[in-house]
Nucleic acid binder design. Sequence first.
DNA 1: TAAATTACCATACAGATGTATGGTAATTTT
DNA 2: AAAATTACCATACATCTGTATGGTAATTTA
Lengths: 207, 207
Amino acid sequence: MSKELTEIQKEILEFIIEQKTGKGLPPTLADIAKHFGYKNRATVQQHLQAIERKGYIKKNPNLARGIELTLDDKFFIPRPVLGEVAAGNPLTIYPDAIDTVELPTIARMPKDSFLLRVKGDSLKDAYIFSGDIVIINPNLEPKNGQIVAAILDDAAVVKRFYKKKNEIELVSENPDFAPIVIDKKYASFKIVGLVIGVYRSMDKKAV
Amino acid sequence: MSKELTEIQKEILEFIIEQKTGKGLPPTLADIAKHFGYKNRATVQQHLQAIERKGYIKKNPNLARGIELTLDDKFFIPRPVLGEVAAGNPLTIYPDAIDTVELPTIARMPKDSFLLRVKGDSLKDAYIFSGDIVIINPNLEPKNGQIVAAILDDAAVVKRFYKKKNEIELVSENPDFAPIVIDKKYASFKIVGLVIGVYRSMDKKAV
DNA sequence: TAAATTACCATACAGATGTATGGTAATTTT
DNA sequence: AAAATTACCATACATCTGTATGGTAATTTA
C-alpha cells in the first residue's frame, strides 16, 4: 500500500470490503453511491480511481462489480509491542501492523473482528495451539466458559473466561498454568474480545 | 435440496461455484454462455431457472451477478455419496453442500480448494478434531508426512500421507487407528487433495 | 402415443453498469 | 499566491445484464 487514504476513501473501501465479505459480492458504483447518498455514480467513480491509484483496490475494467481488493494474502500477525498494550484498543496495540493498516486485512473478517496469533500452550486442551490464529470479536460479551482474549498489564492472553462474584477468573485449560484472578492486582485489565474461531495454516505445523 | 440436477445443470452449477470461490464473483449469464459455448444467454437463463427451481441457487432478480448459492446450512458436510465418490472430482460429489461454511476471510480459499468437515478422532494428535473444517487443495502433490484427504472405496478420510516403495500408507496420528496400506486392496482409491488449513468455529465446541 | 422435460436457438428491450468529459467549490500543498 | 488535491455535481454513451417471448428438435415420462 503506497499512500494514505482520505477519510472518505477509507469509508468507501470499508464499505466495499463489508459488502464483499457480507454479501459475497462487491458493490456496483450505484450501490456505493446510494449508500453514501451520492446523486451520481461519477463521484464514486472518481473515489475508486483515487483508491486504486493508492493501491488498495484493482478495477477490472468494464466489468460489473469488478472491484478487486489488492490485499496480500498474508495474515495480520500482531506482535505484542509493550508499552502501548495497556492503552486499550486492541487495534492500537500493534502499531506496526496497523500502519500497514491494513484496515483492509482486518476488515476482511467478520465485521470488527481481528486476529491474534496464539503463543504458548496454555490452551492446549481447548484445541488451540501455539501458532494458531484466533479470530476475535470485540463486540460480543463473553459468557462464562467461553474463550476470550484479554490484556493484563503488558501481555495479551487467550484464556477461558469465568465471571465470579467479585472477580474475574481467566483459566488455562492446561493444568500447568494456574488460573489468573482479576481483582485489583492488575492495573490495566481489559477483555479484548471473544474468540469466535480458530484458524491454522498447515504450512507451518503438522506438515 | 429437492430434485436431481441434470448433467449439464450440474456442470453449470459447478462452474458458478468455481467462479465464485476462485474469482470471488459469481459469473454473469454471458460468462456462463461463453464458457459452455452457448451462442445465447437465454439458454443459460433457462438452465439457471431449472437449477433454481430445484433449489440449488437463488436468483437476485435484475441484479448483475445475482446468483446466490443456497447455503444449505452452515457447513460443508461431506456425505459419501456412493457411486459418485470414486468418479473423481470432489465438487461433483456434494453438489448440494457446497459453499456453505462461513469461513472467515482470513482462511482464504485458494482457487479450486474446497472444504471437508472432519469426523472422528483419528487426527487428534495432529491437532485436528472432529468437527473441524479442513481446507483442501486438490492441485498440490502431497509429500510424505503431509496430511491429505483421500477416498477409499466409499468413504473419505483425512490422514497423513506416506509414499513407500510399492504402496501408499495413510497413517492416523491417533494410535488407536491402524495405518491404511494402499496396494491393490482398494478398488477405488484416490488422493483428493492436500490439507492446507484447518478452521474451527467456536460456537460448537470448546465454548 | 401424448405430454412433459431437456437443450438449445433467435430477437427484443429496459434498465444497470462502467466510463468519459466537463464543471464548481473548498481545502491543502507547494 | 498559484497549483494540486479533494469532493462533489451533471450529462452522455456504449455495452453489459437480466429478462421476456417464441421457436425447433430430441429425449423422457406418463
